[in-house]
């Protein structure tokens, strides 16, 4: 398919910046044991993974290992037994990530999932090594899913190669990202589920972005309260 003349053994096109790059030639790559890189070195280095100290509850990167203020607020608002146990995320929300996520979600470029796939699944198995968890991707409203054609949380859950359940039903249909922080914290009734839909399950919610945590906390509460889940944690692509 290459339209450039000549070239090395393995010319690839970066999913994000469209420029041509080459992959290191190793024995593994040569025998097709290693999947092709999807993103060039320069773009890869601009997607910053979360390292160092984080808030033990929401996974926010910060300078000390202590519960952050937002999580303290959540603790006062929701009873301990109905609280999201913890959240972990892969990347920080920098400019490059904002651009990439908006192309992925709002422009609907589903192929971009391949840029995140390996980081998403390797980080997941690092922070949730147990196998007895059940994945629950956060659903989109019908209208939103029709418009976009896909649900980014489903695509992310598929990267993890484990069965996922869909007990949650989304009620209202406004975009979270169009709301102010206070509005988001107020709109408690965004999910519903059938009685005992998740009885005794240890659930990990999957979503693209943890911003205020409202979506995930309300989903957790719904699954714990009505669905009778044993515990709910979450894993997102990004922690902003």
């Amino acid at each position: 398919m290459s339209n450039e003349a000549g070239g090395g053994i393995h010319k690839l096109i970066c999913l994000l910046c469209d420029s041509q790059f080459s992959q290191d030639v190793t024995w593994r790559a040569l025998f097709l044991l290693k999947p092709d890189e999807k993103v060039c070195y320069s773009c890869r280095s601009k997607l910053k993974k979360i390292t160092g100290h984080i808030c033990p509850l929401c996974g926010r990167p910060q300078s000390v290992h202590a519960v952050c203020r937002d999580c303290e607020v959540w603790r006062t608002r929701i009873r301990d037994s109905l609280l999201l146990r913890q959240n972990r995320s892969v990347y920080t929300y920098n400019d490059m990530m904002k651009e990439t996520l908006s192309r992925f979600k709002f422009r609907g470029d589903a192929e971009i999932i391949n840029a995140f796939k390996s980081d998403f699944s390797s980080t997941f198995s690092k922070v949730y090594p147990d196998k007895h968890f059940v994945l629950v991707p956060i659903p989109l409203s019908k209208e939103r899913e029709e418009e976009r054609g896909f649900n980014q949380a489903h695509l992310l859950a598929e990267c993890l190669d484990r069965p996922s359940h869909h007990p949650l039903i989304r009620l209202n249909n406004e975009k979270q990202s169009k709301k102010k922080k206070t509005e988001r914290l107020l709109s408690e009734c965004i999910f519903d589920t059938k009685n005992n839909s998740a009885e005794g399950m240890n659930i990990i919610l999957i979503d693209d972005l943890y911003t205020t945590g409202a979506t995930l906390h309300f989903a957790a509460r719904c699954l714990l309260e009505k669905g009778k889940a044993a515990s709910v944690s979450s894993f997102t692509l990004i922690r902003s």
Partner: peptide, 20 residues
């Protein structure tokens, strides 16, 4: 492709930034 309501739908990535 993106997977939508049980079907794979073809789309163009080249001009996706101007609306899919």
């Amino acid at each position: 492709f993106y997977h939508s309501s049980g079907k794979n739908k073809l789309y163009c990535r080249s001009c996706v930034m101007m609306g899919r």
